[in-house]
């Protein structure tokens, strides 16, 4: 607890993260991780279309974490559409498939990075540090 609190205090500013994920188990895990890291305001979208809508409607995020396989609209298409809006927010693709082709597909869609699932505290800290959000 003390670690998370001090990390958040050091960061001073709360960062806004949009999690694009359809499965509850992954959302529950992400919520716990964000809480453990501290200083994160988490917003959630259940599929890619919902994520695009939130961004289009002016959701100002510091980071977007997007799953690949989702109903309605997948993470690749959501990433393409968010980029087409001119949004430059870092987007990190998430999937339990992490072959080079899986990573490339996300990067080609416009993502800045890719992290294999499951998300962990270490991986989340690495992402935050990489995009100067830690």
């Amino acid at each position: 607890m003390a670690g998370a609190a001090s990390a958040a205090a050091e960061r001073k500013v709360t960062i806004r993260v949009l999690l694009v994920e359809d499965e509850e188990i992954h959302r529950v895990l992400a919520r716990a991780l964000m809480k453990a890291v501290g200083g994160v305001e988490l917003d959630e979208a259940g599929n890619g279309a919902e994520a695009v809508r939130r961004v289009r409607e002016g959701g100002a995020y510091d980071l977007i974490l997007a799953d690949r396989q989702m109903p309605v609209m997948d993470g690749h298409e959501a990433t393409r559409q968010i980029r087409a809006l001119g949004v430059t927010t870092p987007i990190v693709g998430l999937s339990s498939d992490s072959l080079a082709a899986d990573v490339d597909a996300f990067i080609k869609a416009g993502a800045d990075d890719f992290t294999p699932k499951p998300l962990s505290k270490e991986k989340l800290n690495h992402i935050l540090a990489k995009f100067n959000l830690a």
Binding site: M1, I25, V28, L29, A32, K35, A36, S120
Partner: peptide, 24 residues
């Protein structure tokens, strides 16, 4: 990963977190 869940529960003071994930 299961150990990580246990640590998140213990460190984060979120009782029932592991049970919630296991049930899901």
């Amino acid at each position: 990963q299961f150990q990580q869940l246990q640590m998140l529960q213990d460190d984060g003071g979120t009782p029932g977190f592991v049970a919630e994930v296991v049930t899901l």
